Computed example of a mutant assay.
Amino acid sequence: MRVVVPYAAREPKTRLEGVLSPAERASFAAAMLEDVLAAVRGAGREPEVLATAPVDVDAPVTVDERPLTPAVNAALAGTDGAVAVVMADLALATPEALADLFEADAGVALVPGRGGGTNALVARHPGFRVDYHGTSYLDHRRIAREVGASVDVVDSHRLATDVDEREDLAEVLIHGASDPPNADGAPTERRSYEWLDAAGFELAGDESRVGVVRE
């Protein structure tokens, strides 16, 4: 199985511009990418990065400056066999959660994100193509039906949590600090959690909602 991790190397995470400077957004996005790559490897797969510009990571990198949909569709069209697509901002991804996705044997397996997006998928049907505009989860279910592919929905809090907004940072601080140990019993290294902690972010909230503040 080919595992593709799309990555916006130019001006990443623009919706965090009220919280982080451009340089900080780039650094934090790189930390999340490293967490995703580590989780893919922990699930027994070798990831490759599909980036909009060259990036320095310990994985093969394909540079494609096109928007997400045509870039991913080119990867699907150019591959014989199953292709997994895992977004680079799944800061809480674990090998166990990804293994559940990779092992799904439907023609298309989908991980819905909050708000109707698609955070990860596995395409085994050769006719399936993506469309990441709008409510892509519903679009991908429709596309799968149109090409005659069976569909599995993988329900995973860790894979459903993508980090785009300020409130998403709280999820990283809550769950990144309590990751289960690795298979060898060692503590899980969560670079995105460590980045936020070092940058002075901490949890704060009232009785109804938890958010983040920065020291």
Rank of each mutant, 00 (worst) to 15 (best):
V55T: 00
A91C: 12
V61G: 03
G115I: 11
V86Y: 06
M87R: 14
V85S: 00
V57D: 01
L90R: 01
G81V: 10
L90P: 04
F102I: 07
R114N: 12
R66T: 03
P60T: 10
V111N: 09
R66Y: 02
V111Q: 09
A43M: 01
V63C: 13
V57Q: 03
V57H: 04
D80A: 15
A84T: 09
E96P: 03
L76H: 08
A97Q: 04
P67W: 04
G78S: 04
D64Q: 00
R114T: 13
P70Y: 01
P95C: 06
V108T: 12
E103K: 13
A82N: 06
P70S: 05
A93R: 09
L101D: 11
A82P: 15
P54S: 01
L76A: 12
A74N: 06
V57R: 04
D58C: 02
A77F: 02
A71Y: 05
F102A: 03
G117A: 14
T118V: 14
D89N: 14
A71F: 07
A97Y: 02
A53T: 10
D105C: 02
T79F: 06
P70W: 01
A74G: 15
G115D: 09
G81K: 08
A109S: 15
T62Y: 02
A74F: 07
R66N: 01
V72K: 00
L76G: 12
G107M: 05
R114L: 15
D56V: 02
V83L: 03
V111H: 08
A43W: 01
D64I: 00
V63D: 12
V86N: 10
V63I: 13
A53W: 10
A84M: 08
T52C: 05
V55G: 00
D105W: 04
A71N: 06
E48H: 07
V49R: 03
V85Y: 01
E46V: 11
A75F: 01
V72A: 01
T79E: 13
D56G: 04
A91M: 11
D64E: 01
A77V: 06
R114M: 14
P67T: 04
A75L: 08
A74I: 08
E48C: 12
